[in-house]
Design a protein around this nucleic acid. Structure first.
Length: 439
RNA sequence: GGGGGGGUUCCCGAGUGGACAAAGGGAACAGACUGUAAAUCUGUCGGCUAAUGCCUUCGGUGGUUCGAAUCCACCCCCCCCCA
């Protein structure tokens, strides 16, 4: 490689954060792009994103903002992740058509614990308790830009109402609040007062972070634009500070579906909710048209590698999908799990022996005794079918295979003779596999 | 507080006493075709059953009827208009 080429790629790597965000497709809107660009140039910028602890795990929808923070930290800036324990008590009306179900404090606490641990896998928080995970954080940062993880309940929960109104409420114009899209879209369906307050609380978060942590940038999904702008305004009024907002596009798949939804529900980061194998498969099965976008958004592969993969056409796109699946799985579950999932997929779809991480369960041998275990029951039991009726239908439609042999008899029962290498392999459709481990 | 409209199966949305497990569309699932892709075509799409059939469902609770998603009473929730 010629010296100047090396220099160029070096520069690219250390190129501007905004540039990379733009190239990767993270950039939707910015409150003041040139102002922000200057700031990022001048100093180590502290930026934050809020995460709602609505479940005890993040899913790949919420992974996008995480990646935003990851890039920020890689560019030497300091990320703050807010687990919104305080705001979760209120409920964000943005992008929702109905009043959100309110969470109890216990639920929120439990969810926070789960989400915290997951965030620590992506960002260097420099906290032994958190970063001390099997694979450690993806990013190694210096001490000056270590991430911080905060719970906004710490400053919201005990806030005195009257005091809050006097200090913060006076800076908000109801007229302006009513013009927010998040509010307007709810004017028909109804918007409770508590939800109406959400944007104030989020703006206050920003102001607190700005005052206490020098935070000058808030990022988030584009549905947060209104809330972010409110925060920028509040920082100016309350702290006389010029701060910035940056939003990411709201992702939909090529077919228009919400990101990360499958028949089985959302695709979760927690291996308990979505197994690494299923996680890997989700990415392999992505629409051709989404591959390039997802490579940029969800992986840390470098620009050259991604552009190489983007050149692939036709059936070769599968190679890009495998690279995508492996990279994202490695990011979330670690390289070992990614390798295992890939091996399992290869075994199932291209023939091979290593089926290690294919979803499976133990089966007591005595259940195969006598008349055996009706296949219909087995399918329903392991979740390959939602009910016995569905299992029956699947068999009728020719969608079920046992040990690679199509089954047409609804009364088929699994017996000892079906056990090969200690397992009975069941398959529904082309892609759903399950192994019963016998003995 | 007064008047009007509405709550149907995963979603949208028909259905005003039996033929309704409920039209149609979407989503989803299976088959064919493919590249573990898309598009297209075919089939399926509450539960149990080999099947006949049985059971559960149309905001909630009671009632009228041989029979109710459909009629009546009360209640809950939502929207609109007036005050």
């Amino acid at each position: 490689m010629a010296p100047d080429q090396a220099k160029e790629s070096d520069q690219e790597r250390s190129g501007s954060f905004l540039e990379e965000m733009r190239w990767r497709g993270f950039f939707q809107q910015c409150t003041d792009e040139t102002g922000l660009a200057d700031l990022l140039e001048r100093e180590t910028v502290t930026a934050y994103i809020g995460f709602d602890p609505t479940a005890d795990s993040l899913h790949i929808g919420s992974m996008l903002p995480i990646m935003g923070l990851v890039h920020l930290q890689r560019h030497g800036h300091k990320p703050i992740a807010i687990a919104g324990g305080g705001t979760a008590m209120v409920g964000d009306p943005s992008g929702k058509s109905e009043l959100r179900q309110m969470l109890t404090l216990e639920q929120i606490d439990a969810n926070l614990a789960g989400v915290k641990a997951q965030l620590a896998r992506f960002l260097d928080f420099g906290e032994p308790g958190l970063a001390d995970l099997p694979h450690g954080p993806v990013v190694t940062a210096g001490t000056d830009n270590r991430g911080v993880l905060l719970n906004n309940a710490d400053w919201l929960a005990d806030k005195n109402y009257i005091e809050f109104l006097r200090d913060v409420g006076r800076h908000f114009s109801v007229n302006q609040m009513l013009t927010r899209d998040s509010v307007k879209t709810r004017m028909e369906a109804g918007l409770s007062f508590i939800e109406f307050n959400y944007m104030i609380l989020q703006a206050y978060d920003f102001a607190v972070l700005n005052a206490d942590h020098g935070c000058k940038l808030q990022m988030g999904g584009n549905d947060q634009w209104g809330n972010i702008c409110s925060g920028v305004d509040l920082c100016r009024r309350l702290n006389q500070q010029e701060v910035y907002g940056l939003t990411f596009p709201l992702l939909a798949t090529a077919t228009g579906a919400k990101m990360g939804k499958t028949a089985a529900g959302a695709v979760w980061i927690s291996p308990e909710r979505t197994s690494p194998y299923d996680f890997f498969q989700y990415w392999v099965n992505v629409d051709d048209r989404d591959v390039s976008r997802f490579l940029r958004l969800y992986t840390l592969l470098d620009r050259g590698r991604i552009e190489e993969l983007e050149k692939l056409e036709g059936a070769d796109i599968r190679e890009a999908k495998r690279a995508l699946a492996h990279a994202v799985t490695a990011l979330v579950h670690g390289p070992d799990e990614a390798d295992k999932a890939e091996k399992a997929a290869t075994a199932l779809f291209q023939g091979g022996a290593d089926a290690g991480t294919v979803p499976s369960d133990d089966l007591a041998p005595d259940r195969l005794a006598g008349g055996g275990l009706p296949l219909i029951d087995a399918l329903a039991e392991v979740g390959l079918a939602k009910s016995k009726g569905e299992a029956r239908r699947l068999v009728r439609q020719g969608g079920v295979k046992v040990n690679d042999t199509p089954v047409s008899d609804e009364a088929r029962a699994l017996v000892m003779d079906d056990v090969e290498d200690g397992r009975i392999r069941m398959q529904v459709g082309k892609k759903r596999h399950f192994h019963l481990l016998v003995g």
